[in-house]
Amino acid sequence: MNNPLVREIIVQLAGFGIFFWVLKAFAWKPILKLLEDRRARIEKGFQDIESGKKEAEGLKADYHAKIAKIEEEARFKIQEAVQEGKKIAQEIREKAREEANDILVKAKQNIELEAAKAQVDLKRKIVDLALSAAGHVLKRDLNEKRQREIVEEYISELSEGASK
């Protein structure tokens, strides 16, 4: 202890101890806080970037989902329109067919009517022809009304016979 060098070392160690203790008590915390703040700031920066990235990815996924949904809807609407078109075409076709049938039926009826008319005309002409022929053959003067009845009777028989 009497050695001046040892005493100097002791004094120096004690002084440094006090210096260290004071620094630890008063400067250590602010320095640590500074470092911690810096670390936290950097960490937050990275977290912000990460969350921004995630948000962007979420938005991208949303966007893709929405586009897919819109595309699906568009496809569905197109299909619907196609179905609708097909339905309308079918209806138009059926209506046309019905109209054609109606026209056909009417035409048939007209034809039948015309045929009936023609038959009646024909009958009248045949009767006339027959009467004139019969008048020539029989040289008999019959009452015209009676003659007509007889011929018509005859023709009816003929037509019945023909239909049998």
């Binding site: 001046p4 100097e8 004094v11 004690a14 002084g15 440094f16 006090i18 210096f19 004071v22």
Partner: peptide, 20 residues
């Protein structure tokens, strides 16, 4: 100051303010 502190009867670190 370390020298002065060490030459006292009881060594005292009187130099410590100068460390700051």
């Amino acid at each position: 100051f370390v020298g002065m502190g060490s030459q006292m009867p009881l060594p005292i670190p009187i130099h410590f303010p100068f460390l700051f």
